[in-house]
Design a protein around this nucleic acid. Structure first.
Length: 316
RNA sequence: CGCGGGGUAGAGCAAUGGCAGCUCGCAAGGCUCAUAACCUUGAGGUUGGCGGUUCGAGUCCGCCCCCCGCAA
């Protein structure tokens, strides 16, 4: 069976890989976002999916826009199924009608919860007990199509960071897809419409919204830092300078919290006071890893070697 | 050539153009019931590279290399 794959980011690569390994499918084409200028020198950079496809010698197409690229439809003509994972662009209606077996989407949440752009971050940010992946048959509305299959990941007691949960969900999505695909293609699976009343949406993440508010509870700040550890990274300021925070641990101390953001220990541990939280005694955060402006990311011990007299300073 | 910060001991950071230091780590010794604690001593540097100015350059000038933040 010949299929076409639409995808761009790291999340898509394991899924694509698994499809290739499954051997019963031929990847007729990979559609991914065009190379974009990125980084300090604005060099053109290929998407992770493109790099993978080039390496595996799979045909790659990079339309500027799906809407007005009619050639692409012809090139995909022989493909009986389209599969999408984190492509990065809304799929125009006309594509949905092409493949005989429809257009499937692997989405990293338990739909209808967390439709939209940042489902993985949302699950961490909200401290959910579980999340997962859902395979849907796409329709014209965003992450709205009928559900083909679902698989859950238990988050209780785990402190997943974004990277780890992302990889976990990508792996799970890949497994789920190759597992249910035979049954689906056989017509044994009848997709179930989502319960609209349960639907929630996640927004595209903005760099501006990841400044730490130290009046929040230690656990809320911890979740925020974990959710954004890969990008764009939660930040605060120290004496007017940007300070990115990569890793923290909430804890309690045998003392009352000081002013939110105040440093209460500056060696060997780096500990900051947070806001009061009714439910718990964890009112402090130990910073384990951080990065100052112009410097590289450092463990807090090394950061403290060169930054003396931080005790009682206020982070903002 | 998008804007900006930076490169000094193994790590992180100081040093008005005038003997290159601090904290941590490392080594040896001491103290201690004991320790990641404390005390003593020590090793470890071509100050990213090349050239220039100067009696004298980590510091000023020019070029190059590398790292980081912003923006994408």
């Amino acid at each position: 069976m010949k299929l076409a794959f639409f995808g761009t980011s790291d999340f898509a690569v394991p899924i694509l890989q698994k499809l290739l390994e499954a051997a019963s499918y031929e990847i007729g084409a990979v559609v991914t976002q065009p190379d974009r200028p990125a980084g300090r020198s604005k060099k053109m950079v290929s998407s992770p999916v493109k790099k993978w496809a080039v390496e595996k010698k799979v045909p790659v197409f990079q339309p500027e826009s799906l809407l007005d690229d009619d050639d692409l439809l012809e090139k995909l003509a022989g493909c009986e199924l389209f599969v999408l994972a984190s492509y990065g662009e809304i799929i125009p209606k006309k594509y949905l009608q092409i493949p005989r077996f429809g257009f499937l989407n692997v989405h990293p949440s338990l739909l209808p919860k967390y439709r939209g752009a940042s489902p993985i971050q949302a699950a961490i940010l909200n401290g959910d007990f579980e999340t997962g992946v859902t395979i849907i048959r796409m329709d014209e509305l965003l992450d709205h199509g009928a559900i083909v299959a679902k698989a859950a990941v238990n988050l209780t007691g785990k402190r997943f960071g974004y990277r780890q949960l992302h990889d976990e969900l990508a792996k799970l999505g890949a497994q789920l897809l190759v597992k249910v695909l035979p049954e689906y293609l056989d017509g044994q699976i009848k997709p179930v419409p989502q319960e609209e009343a349960q639907a929630t949406f996640t927004q595209k993440i903005s760099k501006k919204n990841v400044r730490i508010d130290w009046r929040d509870s230690a656990e809320a700040i911890d979740r925020m830092i974990r959710a954004f550890e890969t990008w764009p990274v939660a930040w605060t300021t120290l004496e007017g300078q940007l300070l990115k925070i990569y890793e923290v641990v909430p804890l309690s101390l045998a003392q009352d919290p000081k002013q939110p953001g105040q440093i209460v220990e500056a060696g060997p541990r780096l500990i900051v006071s947070c806001g009061q939280n009714s439910g718990t005694k964890l009112t402090f955060l130990q910073i384990k890893s951080l990065q100052a402006q112009g410097a590289r990311r450092l463990p807090s011990e090394e950061f403290l070697n060169g930054h003396r007299n931080l005790e009682a300073k206020i982070l903002g």
